[in-house]
Design a protein around this nucleic acid. Structure first.
Lengths: 197, 197
DNA sequence: TGAGGTATTGGGCAAACGCCCAAGGCGAAT
DNA sequence: ATTCGCCTTGGGCGTTTGCCCAATACCTCA
């Protein structure tokens, strides 16, 4: 019943990776330190450099893992959308009101900036980004949006991050963006808009 | 002819602010240190804390100053665009091919993330952002784009940053985004597209 | 039961960190 | 000529950093 040494090791690794994901968002990529990681994971500082060569190695592995999980979740949601333009409609209006937990956007932005200064992270991030782009383009295509699905997917992805980032700075900035988004994906103008309190 | 002490002081201040602007982009907000700043500015380390209370104070002042200068430049360019939809057309296609020096986008993103963790920076950044938004919305309106100029300006600004950031990670990602951008601002589809080699 | 392997402990090292300050330099004002 | 005020020097304070390592605990398997 007691876990083996190897199992405890995997548990410690996982705790450190989870701690890294939180700390990057809360303190910023460059402010995550060996001791903060250990404290957050509830382990001794020496373990950080037993399981990972450098702090940067841990940050890269943790952030890529978190991002891939996030992408998987969003793609799962997209897959549940109704077929045809109605699905796009729902997804777009959902995105327009997107004001959920900004942690994933902060993490993504931190990764992009860190990727500017680390080639290995840049490569890994580009791979995830490409996969996401291709999947969304195909999703758009399958939902009847056949005009430039690739370009539209790129713009949509970039827009999502940029929008959340801007709102983060000024939460008062609650301008509804349904209209521009609808035009972007080629949907007709909304005829009846529900009253927003 | 020899500068007074006060004049030399202003020169030193300016050199430190310029150094901070470069270092934030090159090393990341959290990795800018007293000694790196002094070395980059060509002054002694002690001077940093003579002219600025803390390193963070210097970073905030430098980044806000750089961003305001950048916004001023872009708005000057917009002011030179021809009137009417033709001006929007030129500006949009120019933005679509925007792949200029990404330093300003990196700086802006670093500021947004740092603003998450510093209320004073958040306030200052929100002010600049609001000014930019209002100016672009008015510009769009004056150029005949009267449908939701505020929302469109917000989407446009967020999109600019997001696009550059994504391209930074994957420079191969050279999908032309003219089409989605044209739809976004409500321009008709382009009829004759020049061949791109 | 003893050997072998993995995970963990706890301490430590050199370097870099933010910030501080007494002493001195040097035009400007008196 | 002397005082005044700002800027600069050079060094140093205590803390924190990334990374390392000998010793130990504990499970597994022969």
């Amino acid at each position: 019943m007691t876990p083996t040494a190897a199992e405890r090791g995997q548990e410690t690794r996982a705790r450190l990776i989870a701690a890294a994901g939180h700390l990057i968002v809360e303190e910023g990529w460059g402010a995550v330190t060996t001791r903060k990681l250990a404290a957050r994971a509830g382990v001794r500082p020496g373990l950080v450099h037993y399981h990972f060569g450098t702090v940067t190695d841990l940050l890269i592995e943790a952030s890529l893992e978190a991002l891939e999980r996030e992408v998987g979740i969003v793609m799962g949601l997209l897959a549940q959308a109704p077929p045809g333009p109605l699905g796009v409609e729902l997804a777009v209006t959902g995105m327009a009101q997107y004001s959920a937990d900004p942690a994933s956007t902060i993490l993504t932005s931190e990764m992009m900036l860190a990727a500017t200064r680390n080639e290995r992270l840049r490569t890994g991030l580009a791979a995830v980004q490409g996969k996401w782009l291709q999947a969304v383009a195909q999703w758009l295509n399958e939902h009847g949006l056949t005009v430039e699905p690739d370009a539209t997917a790129l713009v949509l992805g970039a827009l999502l991050d940029g929008l959340v980032l801007h709102r983060l700075v000024d939460p008062e900035l609650a301008v509804p963006v349904d209209g521009p988004l609808r035009r972007l994906v080629g949907l007709p103008e909304a005829t009846n808009r529900p009253a927003t309190p």
